[in-house]
Amino acid sequence: MAELGATLTVFLVAVVAIGVVRWVGDTLNPVQLTVPERVPFAGGFDPEFHAWSRFHIRWYSMALLFLAFDMEMVFMYPWAVVFVREGMISLVEMLMFILILVVGIVYTWRERGFEWS
């Protein structure tokens, strides 16, 4: 814990420092904008709608694949630490685990899950 105290402090100071720079900028040039100055840029025409809409991502199958692989990464860290100690068995075991998951990638690729346009 003690070691991460310094990290936490560094994080907070960095966040505050960036906030201060932004604040200095706002003090030098106060942000009081009229309506036309706030129109979002799309090349010269006012947007008809809010840009926040139900955004259809085409890579949702990739996102689902990621969820499964992210779980796998959790196992990898402790595995790496004991790898040398446990020897061949750890290699084979992880190989089995990964190969099972690779089937998932191959399947997604075959179903054209990485393509969207």
Partner: peptide, 9 residues
């Protein structure tokens, strides 16, 4: 799903 009409350029 939503369809966003916009004039670009």
């Amino acid at each position: 799903l939503d369809q966003l009409s916009v004039t670009v350029g």
